[in-house]
Amino acid sequence: MSAIVTLKKGEGRTIKAGGAWIYDNEIDTIMGSFENGDIIIVKDFDGYPMGKGFINTNSKITVRMLTRHVDTEINEDFFRMRLQAAWDYRKKTVDTSSCRIVFGEADFLPGIVIDKFEDVLVVESLALGIDRVKNLLINILKNILKSDGIIIKGVYERSDAKVRINEGMQPFKGFIGDEFDTNVEIIENGVHYIVDVKDGQKTGFFLDQKYNRLAIQRLCKDAKVLDCFTHTGSFALNAGIAGAASVLGVDASALAVKQAQENAKLNHLEDSVTFICKDVFDLLPELEEQGEKFDVVILDPPAFTKSRNSIKNAVKGYREINLRAMKLVKDGGFLATCSCSHFMDYELFTKTIGQAASNSHKRLRQVEFRTQAPDHPILWAADESYYLKFYIFQVTSDK
């Protein structure tokens, strides 16, 4: 018999709206014996059954919901159903050669991310309950892919995020099963990359920007392009392969720049796409002082805030780089700008860009607004699943 978590009266608004998390301060009682990571039943204050989920009293997110049906058995068949649905969805919505197959709560498998890079899987497990079944999930998924003719040659775990400590677990990275070459070549939008799944950022590559990178290609033919926070060169290389006259990619990480240069050679773009290691906040004023102008400027910064407490400083950072970037865009040129911080929501990000435009005496014409690729689905009522905001503007003088 599962333990039963009963909510306080008036609590549980998030899961009632379709979300997946129950916080510690929403719980009235926990009846019955359990170990952290076990599956428990959740009931409302009046005894109404609300579903089943993993429990972990070490975490402020005490319950992560798996199903809204208390009579559903959480077993191998249940996880097979969830994983098959996740894979079927990707086959309909994205290029699956490299894609995110499982996106945690948005795929109703809370706390786990599974990315596919050609014939390699990279797993990030961030919650205790799901961590206990991750090997089962991997085996099921490999069989699902095999039935579609996809043979996975290796699995690497990148559960090295500090948030695992909140779950009572230590960060971890390493092979699951046989070892393999962790530098994996992928092709996205016609661009070749070497993805370092062992030491690259997150799971090795930012798949969420796939179609945003494609969207800038048509703007970049014969253009002079500046790509800021280029990381391993993804936007810069999309500009290059689209026929840009010249592309300058900038990143503060020497390791990332080295990888970007190797990716440029891989695509035979080293003559037109170059990279430098420098802090973008230092470089942009220098370029402005030198009188440099670009047809296209791209801003793809890391998240400037990962908590509500640092939003004010993040706003200053986003406003500063957008202001500087607008000044570097030729009259009638284009700015692509984004934020990958969940806490920098759409309204605040939009307002900040507007302030930058006003302060730089520029007028913006919105070309399009985009979010993350469909393999990172946004689950309404699970706000944490919506994090990427991406604008393309035409920039003109305020005359």
Rank of each mutant, 00 (worst) to 15 (best):
D282V: 12
F103V: 02
D375F: 06
K43L: 06
T274M: 05
Q372D: 12
I392L: 04
I165H: 11
S339A: 09
G233M: 06
V225S: 01
F334L: 03
H376Y: 12
E179N: 10
E167K: 13
K330L: 11
H69A: 10
I22W: 07
F229G: 02
F34S: 08
D331T: 15
M50W: 03
G51N: 08
Q290N: 15
I176N: 03
D44Y: 04
D375V: 11
S98P: 02
L388T: 02
I15V: 11
Y346V: 09
Q259K: 15
L66H: 03
A17R: 12
F103G: 02
G200E: 01
H342P: 06
V94L: 07
S307T: 15
K278Y: 15
D95L: 03
N238E: 06
D77S: 13
K224S: 12
I30C: 11
Q217M: 14
G177A: 04
R82I: 06
A244L: 02
I151Q: 12
F78Q: 07
Y193R: 05
D375M: 11
K146G: 12
K306F: 07
K173S: 14
I276H: 08
K9R: 13
D383E: 13
L248M: 14
F205C: 09
T396Y: 05
A17S: 15
I101F: 09
F334R: 03
